[in-house]
Simulated assay, not measured.
Amino acid sequence: MNLKIAIQKKGRLSEKSLQLLEECGINISNGSRVLKAKAKNFPIEILFLRDDDIPQYVEQGVVDLGILGENEVLEKDKDVSIVSKLGFAQCRLSLAIPKEEDYKGLSYFEGKKIATSYPKILSNFFEKENINVQIEEIGGSVEIAPSIGLAQGIFDIVSTGSTLITNGLKEVETILTSEAVLIGTKNLSSEKQEILDRLLFRINAVQSSSENKYILLNAPNDNLQEIINILPGIKSPTILPLAKEGWSSIHSVIKEDTFWEIIEQLKNKGAEGILVLEIEKMIL
């Protein structure tokens, strides 16, 4: 029995999804134009589909799982579960208006027409804000809508904001932040749930390794307790005596997002020979 997983058939999200599975030790061979592939060493089958079709296929049980952007999941509003957030393909969905317009808050959009490829997300947002807007649904090239008189503003995915600037627009409100998620059907059999649990175990190990660094350092024993307090590790640091009297070697794990702050604190407490290593896998 294989667990069926749908991923986007092309693009950056597809590449990152396959990379994640590879980092989980799952060997998938997919040549060009192949829309279905089986893993050689794990009981899963991959289907390569349009991302906006994936929620429907998961809801109907055609596939068991899907990897796609959270924004697409919310827009399609199908009866599926978000099993796990995957930490890549981050983006934001924002409102933008012509750069010469004076913006003082959401009330600006009262009675105005907004062009978007995400009408459901946008409609739900403005309903909660009790603001009446007209939504113009278009499939692409949303940024051009104000300049051709189709709408007074847009709601779309923003990354660097350069496309908005090129089209004479400015970002005024971020409505949603999104990332890749693993979604699942709500009626998995016990056999497939067991396979999913094994897959999630591997995904969690990969995610934990990317969020942490392994650190080794030499520390004076006089400041050992203070340095230990800075470096709690997963449970507590490993401490080994050095040949040099009065010094110890400390091994620990630190979070990527606090890395430089912690390094500075360690240096201030007399730590020397600090070595920082990538972690390939981390089993908690």
Rank of each mutant, 00 (worst) to 15 (best):
E256Q: 14
L3T: 01
I121R: 11
K213S: 06
E136D: 07
Y108Q: 07
L231P: 05
E143V: 11
S190V: 14
L216H: 10
C24K: 00
E136I: 04
K113P: 02
I165L: 12
V206Q: 05
N268I: 09
Q207R: 14
A89R: 09
R12C: 05
F109K: 03
V58Y: 02
W260Q: 15
S252A: 10
I263K: 08
K9E: 11
I67V: 10
N130G: 06
V206G: 01
A6T: 02
V62N: 09
W247L: 04
S189K: 13
G111A: 11
K244G: 00
I175A: 05
T258S: 14
S32I: 13
I28C: 00
Q56W: 02
K10T: 10
L196C: 03
I203L: 01
F259C: 00
E171H: 03
I5R: 01
G25L: 00
P232A: 05
I82S: 09
V73I: 12
S249I: 10
L275H: 13
I175W: 02
I203W: 03
S14M: 12
E173I: 11
D53C: 01
G31H: 04
F126I: 03
E22P: 00
N71G: 13
R50D: 15
Q193K: 13
E101Q: 06
S123Q: 11
I183V: 13
L240Q: 08
G233S: 06
T238P: 01
W260T: 13
M282V: 01
K85H: 07
G149T: 03
K128A: 15
K112I: 03
T238Q: 10
P119Q: 05
L277N: 11
